[in-house]
């Protein structure tokens, strides 16, 4: 236990990784939010969207605060839903900019986390992986002190590092449990999903089942073995780069740009979190 305790409490000499994480996550949140603006009402309003809120409401626990609940509450005071939505959008973007600036990092992240949860829990059917990773990122930015002298930096940095490793281990493990990741069928199915690429015709890959099997198994193994290779100085850079290449592939082939982007941010943060020597040149960015 002592060894583990010491491992969680090592000396920290720079916070570049945290600054990188804070700024890139803030930019990511602003762009991701802007991307959904044309459909904001379609997805998150009470009665003007694709699904009325009372249809979705049955699956939302009472303890969840979301945008439709706020709209309905403020309506009882005579505040129009359009004003509530506009106010929400302005506060959301403003908080993202404040977080990016680093001003009261923890408090800004906490408020933005609350706003992000309010939005993503507005309709349980319309949220996906990128939303959960956004919430978790903001949770870390709420928790991790921004002061280099804080004793909280080291253990919380380790927590983040462990989290990334657990996520990839299970991503690989879950895939290998399914028979279709062993014969190329899963990767074939994934690249031919209706939301996958329509820009590039990659159906010719169907003529090379061995290649598809290799890509599928390779991805699963890359993820499964992530925790075993990223801690080693000799293999760390290669492994993280390979995972980033995999996410770039996912972005362009499956059209999951935002999910891939946030996973790349997590990987780069993970990589930078090892470089906390004083000599690190980007320390004062």
């Amino acid at each position: 236990m002592n060894k583990l305790y010491n491992f969680f409490n090592t000396e920290q000499k720079n916070l570049f990784w945290l600054k990188f994480f804070r700024i890139s996550i803030s930019i990511f949140i602003i762009i991701h939010f802007a991307a959904v603006l044309p459909d904001f009402n379609n997805l998150y309003s009470v009665n003007d969207g694709v699904l009325s809120y009372n249809v979705v409401d049955v699956y939302i626990p009472q303890y969840i605060i979301n945008l439709p609940k706020i709209i309905l509450y403020l309506k009882s005071f005579g505040i129009d839903s359009a004003i509530t939505i506009l106010g929400f959008k302005i506060i959301f973007v403003l908080l993202a900019f404040i977080l990016m600036s680093g001003y009261y990092q923890n408090f800004a992240a906490l408020l933005l986390l609350l706003m992000q949860i309010i939005l993503s829990k507005s309709n349980i059917y319309f949220s996906y992986g990128a939303d959960f990773f956004t919430s978790m990122s903001l949770f870390y930015l709420t928790l991790i002190p921004s002061n280099i002298n804080s004793v909280g930096i080291s253990p919380l940095k380790r927590l983040f590092q462990f989290h990334v490793c657990i996520a990839y281990f299970f991503a690989g493990f879950d895939k290998l449990l399914g028979i279709n990741w062993w014969n190329g069928e899963s990767i074939w199915k994934a690249i031919n999903l209706p939301f996958a690429t329509s820009t590039y015709d990659i159906s010719f890959l169907g003529n090379y089942p061995i290649l598809l099997t290799s890509i599928g198994l390779g991805s699963a193994l890359l993820e499964l073995l992530y925790p075993f290779f990223v801690w080693n100085k000799k293999t760390s850079n290669f492994w993280i780069s390979a995972i980033i290449v995999m996410h770039i592939g996912i972005a362009f082939i499956l059209n999951l740009y935002f999910f891939s982007a946030i996973m790349i941010i997590w990987n780069l943060t993970f990589k930078f979190s090892f470089n906390n020597e004083k000599s690190y040149s980007l320390v004062n960015v």
Binding site: F132, M136, F170, A171, F173, D174, A190
Partner: peptide, 17 residues
Amino acid sequence: TSYTGLETGYGFFGTNV
């Protein structure tokens, strides 16, 4: 877990697409 995003799993297209 609902308010932190930690409720998610990490299968990413596993066990099956």
